[in-house]
Amino acid sequence: MIIAERKPVDEIKGFIEGKKKVLVVGCRGCVTVCNAGGTKEVGILASLLRLDAQKDGRDLTVDEHTLERQCDPEYIDELVELVEKKYDAILSMACSVGPQFLARRYPKEKIYPSLNTCFIGGALAHGIWAEHCQACGNCIIHNFGGMCPISRCSKSLLNGPCGGSAGGVCEISKEVECIWHLIATKVMEENRLDEFAPIQPIKDWSSSRDGGPRKIVREELVK
C-alpha cells in the first residue's frame, strides 16, 4: 500500500491561517491502514486544530468527513453537498492523489495536502512500515530471492552488495538493512551461486518514472 505520514501540526496550521471554516477529508484506503489519514486520524487532526483555535480565542469551525477513497472520481463526487457549505480550506488526509483529485473536481476550493506521501511499502509490525517497491514498472524480484534491490538498496544496485555492506546493514545507516546482504545470504544458503553468477542486465528505466508520467489504459474496462 501507499505509506503516508501526517504533516506536522505547525505546517497544517500555516495552511489554515486566517481561515474560519475548514473541512478535513479522510480516506478509507491505504492511509487508513497505515494509520495516517482514516476516520480516526481525521478526528485527531480536527480536534487538535479546534483546541489550538480555542486556545488562541480564534473562531474556527472544523468539520470532518472520510471518503471511501480519494483516488476514484465517484467517491470524490460524494463531497458535493459538503463542499457547497463553503469552506475556507479543505484539508485532504489522503496520499497526494487525493488532494489532486479534489482540486480537479472542485477547482474553486482551496485544497491542502495534510499528509506527506512517503513510499510503497508494507507493515513489518504494527506501527512499523518499510519501503518495498519503487514502481519501476517492470518487476524482477524473482531474480533476487524475492527481494527488490531497486527500492531496498540505497543505490538500487542490480549487482550488489557494494563495499559498504557491513554486518548486514547499509553504509548509509545502521538502521537500514542491506538488502543485498539478505539476497546474497539466501543465494548461498540455497546453494544457487551458479545460477546467480550471471550479471544482471542493464535496467531499462523507461517503464519507470524516468519514462515520463505513466498511464494505463485497459480498453476492455473503458466505457
Partner: peptide, 11 residues
Amino acid sequence: FDVILALKAFE
C-alpha cells in the same frame, strides 16, 4: 484508551 477520548475531553 484512545487519544481521541482525551482530545474530546479537552474540547
